[in-house]
Design a binder for these strands. Structure first.
Lengths: 150, 150
DNA sequence: GTTAATGCAAACGGTTTGCAGGGGT
DNA sequence: ACCCCTGCAAACCGTTTGCATTAAC
């Protein structure tokens, strides 16, 4: 395992990042960071909390949430929930994709008929049996672009 | 407006669908269905509830949820929340996409370097300024494929 | 010593569930 | 008349927030 070596290098990075950002390097942040560097999957806040709990039994789940939010701002992790707002219902049950305005949150349908499995790179085929594809384009819609420019 | 004509045709469909599925065609279901056919956007359960409330002041939000779930099963609407489980955190902050196993819920990273704005169809460019693209492939991963076949 | 971060608890928002009463077939 | 469906209320789950205490700088 080269985890130890990596760990030291990353630790230095974290220290520097905290310095630059003007935030404190606490026990909790350190342990959460270590845990994040150790895992290679996509952990939830709850899972991280569970794992850290062995080392820091008093750590609270909200600290994990706060720390992960901080790390997200620092660019250390990325929140995965693409549409973490409420569940929406689509009356259009045909295959299509979505353009989501980052400004007004409007969702527009995208039809892209010739986007199929053959469009996907080879690696994907090696991962398993593809059932469906869904593309989310995030950007600023024309309406918002027009109203924002004065 | 050809809403009226469409409405009658759709109504017949709904009646038939309910018959086939062996469920009752209630006031609430009818109104929710009508509302769904009238809108062309992506409404939330709450929004539908608000709109229906004018016609059926006693309707409860949980009825809307239950009805939408029923309609989802019947194939009349599609739930949009792609990853409606908890928020996950990605330690990998480089641009990549995801393969999500519909069976074990595992998330695998997909690298597709030559997938950029030029890959997108023309229509998307007309929608606004694209900031990011995220592709979600849903399917069954190799592990699940292997364990499921006896 | 200052200031920011933590732990606790309680609130939050969207969604789901148990139950008794009401409406559709 | 039957049973499914609804409305009500309360629980649920992941997440966020206010506040007093604690720890990093």
């Amino acid at each position: 395992m080269q985890n130890e070596k990596l760990s030291k290098q990353h630790l230095k990075q974290l220290k520097q990042l905290c310095n630059e950002a003007g935030i404190k390097l606490t026990h909790q942040r350190l342990e959460i960071f270590k845990e994040l560097m150790a895992v290679c999957d996509h952990p939830s806040a709850e899972l991280i909390h569970q794992r850290i709990h062995k080392k820091l039994p008093t750590i609270a789940i909200d600290t994990v949430y706060r720390t992960l939010a901080t790390f997200d701002e620092l660019g250390l992790v990325k929140k995965l929930h693409i549409m973490n707002e409420r569940t929406l219902f689509d009356t259009n049950v045909t295959i299509h994709h979505h353009f989501i305005c980052t400004h007004c949150k409007k969702v527009e349908d995208i039809y892209w008929s010739d986007f199929d499995n053959s469009t996907l790179p080879e690696v994907v085929k090696g991962m398993g049996k593809v059932q469906s594809r869904h593309l989310e384009i995030h950007g600023v819609c024309n309406d918002c672009l027009n109203t924002n420019e004065k």
